[in-house]
Design a protein around this nucleic acid. Structure first.
Length: 212
DNA sequence: GGCCAGGTGTAAA
DNA sequence: TTTACACATGGC
């Protein structure tokens, strides 16, 4: 029975879902590349993002400096594989330029940035902000996404908003871990949820039998 | 051929 | 404060 997020966490943990996955689940955890991926993955499948990231890498644009300097038309072209390319090109360059201006480097950014600052940037909503905080900046942040809502719905929960889903996830885990441990717990929890849903979906339905 | 994917901003009720 | 709609490619 899944009575809270801790029960879900422990249940997912037994399944070895993150075996053969990158450290902390998101590829290149703790790097600027994660910031780029977080924008590119909006309403798009990750396999499409990988193509774009490779394009950017090949053209030396997968860095703070590179993104600041690349002509916008070229940037659009390189990220075309992940869709919404005009919009995302604008979001990416705007974000890169403000990171450069406000923090100087990705390293400073990752230490000093906060959620409020991120949310002021166009194209960075709640999920993207938390993804950047959690997987790029190694901060204490629980990411909630379409997979999370779908899984919780399948388990019988109904949440109206992002913040409600997120609160449920956080509140159930908090009592069981030390503050410092939560950085990794949240990162892994979200990763396991995504992998579980991918693996156990049949069309729109999720088979939750194995969680009981 | 239509639907959807690791959302977000904007305009209108 | 909610709800609809545009943004866009590629896989199924």
């Amino acid at each position: 029975m899944i009575e809270d997020s801790y029960a879900l966490y422990k249940s997912l943990e037994k399944k070895g879902l993150l075996k053969n996955k990158p450290f902390m689940w998101w590829p290149e955890y703790g790097s600027f590349e994660v910031v780029v991926g977080a924008i590119l993955t909006q309403n798009t499948q990750w396999t499409r993002v990988e193509v774009s990231l490779e394009n950017l890498r090949q053209n030396n644009v997968l860095s703070l400096e590179g993104l600041c300097e690349v002509p916008i038309e070229k940037l659009q072209d390189l990220i075309k594989p992940s869709g919404l390319f005009k919009t995302k090109a604008r979001y990416l360059q705007t974000l890169a330029l403000s990171i450069k201006e406000e923090f100087g480097s990705f390293e400073k950014f990752s230490v000093d940035v906060d959620r409020v600052w991120l949310l002021k940037s166009k194209g960075v909503g709640a999920e993207t902000a938390d993804s950047i905080l959690c997987y790029a900046c190694k901060r204490n942040a629980m990411v909630v996404d379409a997979y999370t809502s779908r899984l919780l719905n399948a388990l019988g929960y109904e949440f109206g908003s992002y913040i409600n889903v997120q609160s449920w996830c956080i509140e159930g885990l908090k009592p069981w871990f030390k503050e410092g441990e939560l950085v990794e717990i949240y990162a892994l929890f979200h990763g396991m949820i995504v992998e579980f849903v991918k693996k156990n979906s049949i069309g729109k339905k999720i088979d939750i039998e194995s969680l009981r």
